[in-house]
Design a protein around this nucleic acid. Structure first.
Lengths: 357, 357
DNA sequence: TCCCTGCGGGAAAGGGCTTTCTCTGCGGTA
DNA sequence: TACCGCAGAGAAAGCCCTTTCCCGCAGGGA
């Protein structure tokens, strides 16, 4: 690899001058020398060594982001928001997937610190795990002590700046909607128990049901991975245990899509026999059939806010922005079917509109 | 930020010794000193400066990846394959989204070179653009000249190692399938004209039709963005111009989902009135309703192969691995409807199975 | 004519780490 | 006893840049 001094030598100037030309320094350089340097750069196909640059400038500019999985639409949307702000400010993003592994999360905090990022953003649910939370907080605090900025999205554990989707209210909205439609036998397809997102959403849902004099017993909850297959599998278990279910709340849209798949496989019509509610409103939600009724979270906006917090001026006291959840009515939630309906599985497949009130 | 010499000072050893302990160097260090260093590291929350390390070590380990957009499922799958191999070998991946902007692609090649990556992988379609292709090749060649390894996925332009999905055969399979079902009025919802992937798939499709004595006139092709909204919009234009269409081939699954949305909005039953074929078989394809008939590409495998090529031993002659496409029959493609069918839009919505032969 | 100013350029000091080379002191052999 | 070899530690030379500091020179004012 050609180095700066190669370029300087070839142009017959000092490395200092070459550097100034290449970086458009404020210090003036005569056109003659500038030309020579530029020519040398082109001839040698010179590209500055980014590590040397980063080391020489003390200036930290990149921002580190830790998400569960960028290819999960939930995080893809958040990341889109993060990117938008970062790009506007000429910042590079380093994105790491923790795949919901707490240890990996810890490692990535170190890694990103090592890469001298100016700020750190952690997106995704927190864990019900005291030991981990303490460790993470220690690391984050240490990082902040050296001037780093930190913001979290959707996690309670950190005491600094945070953007919080209102998961609890979202769960509440889902519950209220189903109660309004007359459902009593409601099953829940939940994400991993250890995630605070799961328990928050569940808490809101339970609150809504309780207020309406209904209840949400543990036997009507199934915990699984927060993805399509987890949703499909949990739905199957739920249905096996309790065929009388008239509604299923999936704690995110991916799981809801899995639920839909299982219901379809079992010949249960949605929403005529079973209603389904999702959560997040990721883009694909409107494209499944029937289109998914779900709780919308302003995902892109969450990213925008978090990045703005972290790149804006610091505040003496931690700022917490709570972003509202909102119910989006589409086609998977309908009124509770008449109690005389045939047993699940053996009924002729109902058709869309058959039970429209 | 604490530095290595801070650690060394605190432990009462030289930086050299501290470095050896921290990196588990092969050079032996007495337990006593080792303990002291480790204690100092913990107390100071020391994290090595990655840039300084990368600068000091001469061997490069990270691998750069340029894709169109990781959050696009097509690339998400490929990336999964890349990651799998990279992780196995303890390599870090730097992933960049070009968003199908050739200039950005060029910039990223430089950026990644600057970051001293050991190898470079470009995934995604090439462009019909001589000037760009030449520039890109120059940069890649320059990079290879300094010992970098390069592999491309699905692009013809580079002369080095490559993994090529058989787009042409895939298009051919789609065409043959529709011909077999009796379709004659076939419309195509295509990606951007400038992408080689678009033209390759189109070429295969055209070949199949031609062999069957059918044709594919330009007026039955609409070019749009390679995403859901592009597919929806192109489908609308196609139907407006030619309501007699009995089949639509979308050149990727995202577009197919958009096509499905438009057809649904217009009350056209799939596959009874209009058949739809997708391309890629991304995970969501099986979850839309009706489940998408599509051409499968081994996306994850493509990633695995490309990374293996680049991390394995070099070969004197460039290796090109062509991975086969395969038709996956699901529920969106059916036999051509009887010619007497009512005009699109005013027909009563046909039901699944009505036209099963 | 002299001094000051300001401009264009180079020398050199880091920036934080790895690694080679060198040095010291010890045990063992002749 | 003298010497060799080696283990374990440190000194110092990079790695490739950026940037401060300094220097020489030309032009302008006194």
């Amino acid at each position: 690899m050609a180095t700066l001094s190669d370029v300087a030598r070839r142009a017959g100037v000092s490395p200092a001058t070459a550097s100034r030309v290449i970086n458009g320094s404020s210090k003036p350089v005569t056109d003659e020398l500038r030309e020579r340097v530029l020519a040398a750069v082109a001839e040698l196909q010179y590209v500055p060594n980014a590590h040397a640059q980063l080391l020489a400038r003390s200036h930290r500019s990149a921002v580190g982001v830790i998400v569960h999985d960028v290819s999960d639409p939930y995080f893809a949307e958040i990341t889109r928001g993060l990117q938008r702000v970062a790009t506007d400010q000429g910042r590079l993003l380093m994105i790491c997937n923790s795949y919901r592994d707490p240890d990996r999360e810890l490692e990535y905090v170190e890694l990103l610190r090592g890469h001298q990022v100016a700020a750190l953003i952690l997106a995704g649910s927190g864990y019900h795990d005291e030991a981990f939370t303490r460790q993470l907080n220690e690391k984050l605090t240490a990082y902040e002590a050296t001037g780093g900025r930190v913001a979290v999205i959707g996690r309670h554990e950190h005491s600094g700046d945070a953007v919080m989707p209102d998961n609890r209210t979202g769960g509440y909205l889902a519950g209220r909607e189903l109660c309004g439609l007359g459902h009593r036998a409601i099953g829940v397809v939940a994400g991993p128990r250890i995630l605070t997102t799961t328990t928050d959403r569940l808490a809101g849902l339970r609150q809504a049901l309780t207020e309406q004099g209904r209840e949400l017993p543990e036997r009507r909850i199934r915990y699984a991975e927060f993805d399509r297959d987890g949703g499909a599998e949990a739905t199957a278990r739920l249905l096996d245990a309790d065929p009388e279910l008239t509604a299923i709340v999936a704690l995110n849209d991916s799981m809801a899509i899995g639920a839909l798949a299982t219901l379809r496989a079992r010949g249960l019509a949605v929403p005529q026999q079973v209603s389904v509610l999702g959560f997040d409103d990721m883009p694909i939600a409107r494209d499944v059939t029937p289109a998914l009724t779900t709780v919308r979270l302003p995902l892109v906006d969450m990213g925008v806010r978090a990045m703005s917090l972290v790149l804006g001026v610091g505040a003496p006291t931690p700022r917490v922005e709570v972003l509202p959840a909102e119910l989006v009515r589409r086609d998977t939630a309908g009124p509770v079917p008449p109690p005389t309906r045939a047993t699940a599985g053996s009924a002729p497949r109902a058709r869309r509109g058959d039970t429209t009130s």
